[in-house]
Design a binder for these strands. Sequence first.
DNA 1: CGAGCGCTTGACCGGTCGGTCAAGAACGCG
DNA 2: CGCGTTCTTGACCGACCGGTCAAGCGCTCG
Lengths: 179, 179
Amino acid sequence: MDQAAELFAERGYHPTSVADIVESLGVGKGVFYWYFSSKEELLAEILKSSHQDLRRRQQQAIADEPNPVERIRLGIRASMQWFCEHRKHFTIFQFAASDERFAPVLRRNQEVAIADAVRHIKDAIVEGNIADQDPEVLAQAVVGVVEQLTQTYIFERSEPVDRAADAAVAFCLHGLCGE
Amino acid sequence: MDQAAELFAERGYHPTSVADIVESLGVGKGVFYWYFSSKEELLAEILKSSHQDLRRRQQQAIADEPNPVERIRLGIRASMQWFCEHRKHFTIFQFAASDERFAPVLRRNQEVAIADAVRHIKDAIVEGNIADQDPEVLAQAVVGVVEQLTQTYIFERSEPVDRAADAAVAFCLHGLCGE
DNA sequence: CGAGCGCTTGACCGGTCGGTCAAGAACGCG
DNA sequence: CGCGTTCTTGACCGACCGGTCAAGCGCTCG
């Protein structure tokens, strides 16, 4: 499944044939259809498992951190680190978002991620560290910043994750105006 | 070309055949290859012209506005308005970003958009309305926020553009912490 | 009128794709 | 060893795709 993700990311979903996948694995075509009912199901499975993996990483990173703002900072950092290590999944996510068959799966995954973020934002609002605005809007905006900076600075320019993560955190906390 | 964009957005690039496109136009296949050398060139052309259209809209919106922060606000608003009216192009952009053949074109387009934003951010820094940080990072972050909020609130939840735009502007200016 | 050219048609081609299936290998078990 | 189950193979199928091209339409201009 990991090998298939690699191929999907390199060449795109449609241009990668089932024949390509099984060949790169050195197995016959039958074995593919023994474990997956279709090529479509394979991609859905990749989407699901990578989302779980990212979420696990976020939870590990913020475990036991009492300060909610610090949890957000660590979550952003962990997410960017994960994308850096799993660049291929980023491309796959982008494709999936553009395909009507996979967009719903992706949307549900993102709803979970947003819900996670919302919890910490609410905590921070209660503690008075974050202004009292709609937490979901804030969470969506944070996700947007993280994805954009990840793509530009980590993938396209290969800058260190730390630098990009610090920039993302700084913007998310204080926006254009600074503190 | 507009009709083709519609189909690409609805069904995706690969699943939309040249036969589908010419059929929906009620013309023969030959006429397609008279005007475009390939299906790939058609998409590249769509990418190019829609980028120009969006940029024109931004420039119209901010024309004659002396205050750089206000220009940024108007630019964000105009962009979200444009995406709202050209939803199909948003989906196409997403697909293009996931395909190695089109990603370079898209990247150049985005570089232009970022450069536009950077100019106004620099002006605002000079005037002291925006903190003195790397303007390009700020511009990238703004783009991320705009794209994410557009997708979630305008496309998925059909909220009014004004509300989404106000939320984007508020976040971009002051981040999580508020003013 | 008719020669030439820009434009249009749609049958056709070579090739590829997702998915099937009959055949059999590998293995556990009595 | 014989038998059933699980897993594996790769040739094969029908469908479809991007792209070509010989043929023809209709407009302009001499």
